[in-house]
């Protein structure tokens, strides 16, 4: 019941992840951050098996940052996405694969173009205008299909995100403890103060 959502717009990418850390049916924590900053303009959100997720995220984060230190340049969103896919794919056919699903949000600092990559634990990679992982896909993709346009402004993007999170609260059987929302623009990554305490009535 982990939620990962991503929406791109004119000059931004929104990444949204549920705050509940779960083990089986138990919620261990209600303020979990399922994202990692890979560099100034790339954010990765992850879900999946408990140990694998953070292990993998930190490994990727360290390597993307190592690249910047060695070369003095930053990897762009496309390069980051293909690197991460490569690592998931390499592990997939190893003795112990990573069981992680990923969303990679970024903005190309030179062109200002936003990007969003969807990558599942099988290392299937797709560049998308909006994406989700897990059960959230079934509830949110249809909403996004209807309301999303590639050139929306940030406030419209957040409005659509609200529709999505409301729907998730309404229909998911387990409370995912609200979502953490991060926004990537050409200025970098920032956390968005997402008011999440409103009661959503069941349909």
């Amino acid at each position: 019941m982990e939620v990962l959502l991503g929406i791109t717009g004119k000059d931004f990418t929104i990444i949204c992840a549920s705050k509940a850390a779960m083990r089986g049916a138990t919620i261990l924590k209600a303020s979990d951050d399922k994202t990692r900053n890979l560099n100034k303009h790339n954010l990765m959100a992850y879900s999946g098996e408990a140990g694998d997720t953070t292990q993998f995220a930190e490994y990727v984060q360290a390597n993307v940052q190592l690249y910047s230190m060695r070369s003095g340049t930053h990897l762009g969103p496309d390069a980051v996405a293909n690197f991460v896919r490569g690592e998931v794919a390499k592990a997939l056919r190893s003795r112990r694969p990573y069981n992680v699903n990923l969303l990679l949000g970024g903005v190309d600092p030179t062109t200002g173009k936003p990007s969003l990559y969807w990558c599942d634990y099988l290392a299937a990679l797709a560049k998308l205008p909006y994406a989700a992982h897990g059960y959230a896909q079934y509830y949110c993709l249809s909403i996004l299909d209807k309301h999303h346009h590639p050139d929306i402004e940030l406030d419209q993007g957040l409005k659509i995100l609200r529709m999505c999170t409301d729907e998730l609260k309404r229909r998911l059987p387990i409370d995912f403890k609200g979502v953490l929302v991060k926004i990537i623009t050409k200025d970098g990554i920032r956390e968005h103060d997402y008011v999440d305490d409103k009661q959503i009535l069941p349909a």
Binding site: R85, A89, L92, L122, A123, A124, L125, A126
Partner: peptide, 8 residues
């Protein structure tokens, strides 16, 4: 076939 292998 399998998307990951299409890329690989």
């Amino acid at each position: 076939g399998l998307a990951t292998d299409i890329s690989t």
